[in-house]
Design a protein around this nucleic acid. Structure first.
Lengths: 200, 200
DNA sequence: CCACATCTGTAGTGAACACTACATATCTGG
DNA sequence: CCAGATATGTAGTGTTCACTACAGATGTGG
């Protein structure tokens, strides 16, 4: 039995293009026509490879978080909680205003609220954001154990805080905030983490 | 010349219902059928009164920011920059988890990214968020002039920061964060403003 | 070179969408 | 009580949407 005709496009390259469309227009705002054109394929190829529109989104999110994960590992590798927050938020200020990508963050732009029938899209995005938050929290737990953070510090609250600022910066970036404006926000935000550190 | 048949519904009451639908599903996710049902009217009444779907959104945003404006005035009436931030963020933690409304903030849930043809919806939301930020900035400018904030403090950056945290909290609320979690975020965030105050 | 399996492009499918034509109803001014 | 003006409910309109049937193309195993 033969193995069939091989696909003529590269799935990851196509996903990068789909990612950009979802990033710019959101899940509901992105049309199959836009997606297939950006990906350089026809609808049947899309559906054969990714199942349906939501499957394509999930695949794009997987790719996004995979690429992002490499960077997050570098972030949490910083020596102190303060430096973790600084790397994270300053890096995000740069990333979210990188002209190579649409502004903001796919995990927010993808779709915070959706219509009936797409309810689990926001849920899916939230789950990915929660992963980042968990990674931060674990890092802050360690910082507290190491005596880097004060005894009174709440690692989970700090992680939620840094996550919230990151999301807020993303929304600002998507509505036109420039890099310098985001860096200023990041700079202020880091002070709150510093306030929870023993060596201010 | 007569003045025609009077409308049988109250525009503001209907707007409150429309607001809730946009809030929960976003601009693109909300359908005319859902809106008219929630408003208790038929499509022709909606179009006669608000022009089109986008006109209805703008009217709903006007109402939202009007109601919100009353509260914002109370926020900036606080004595110090630190207290302004505290009232704002703690109040937002409560508002965004008020079961009387959908979770989060309409100015974010309404539509951060939209499809071709609705490009100015995100722009419209951003403009309303910017109003809040401007109000905060003016208040922080005053705080600096009064010697409440340090000489080195940047009122515009602080206002952007508080705005960003508020937006981030809204996204978290919409994805299930409870009131206590948001209050913890607010609590940490306020420390950054306190760090810019003379009397910590 | 043939049976089989998978991909690709063309050209649609039904459903849902925002929006509206039209007849009817209810008001005001004279 | 009539003429003009505006609102309402019914029942659509054309368009766009996500998705697919189908036929032809291109591969593998025997």
């Amino acid at each position: 039995m033969g193995m069939g005709r091989p696909r003529e496009f590269d799935a990851e390259t196509a996903l990068d293009q789909a990612m950009e469309v979802f990033w710019r227009h959101g899940y509901e705002g992105a049309t199959i026509a836009q997606l297939t054109e950006a990906m350089g394929i026809n609808p049947p190829s899309l559906y054969a490879c990714f199942g349906n529109k939501e499957g394509l989104l999930k695949a794009a999110l997987d790719r996004y978080t995979k690429l992002r994960g490499v960077w997050m590992d570098e972030v949490v590798a910083a020596a102190t909680a303060r430096e973790v927050a600084e790397r994270m938020l300053m890096g995000i200020a740069d990333k979210q205003t990188d002209p190579a990508n649409p502004p903001g963050c796919l995990l927010v732009q993808g779709g915070i609220a959706c219509g009936t029938g797409s309810e689990n899209v926001p849920f899916e995005l939230a789950a990915r954001r929660a992963q980042n938050e968990d990674q931060l929290r674990d890092r802050f737990v360690r910082a507290k154990a190491e005596g880097d953070l004060k005894e009174t510090a709440d690692p989970a609250a700090l992680a939620r805080y840094v996550s919230a600022v990151a999301v807020g910066m993303g929304v600002m970036a998507s509505s036109g905030a420039d890099r310098e404006a985001l860096r200023q926000v990041a700079s202020v935000a880091v002070q709150a983490v510093a306030a929870q550190s023993k060596r201010a």
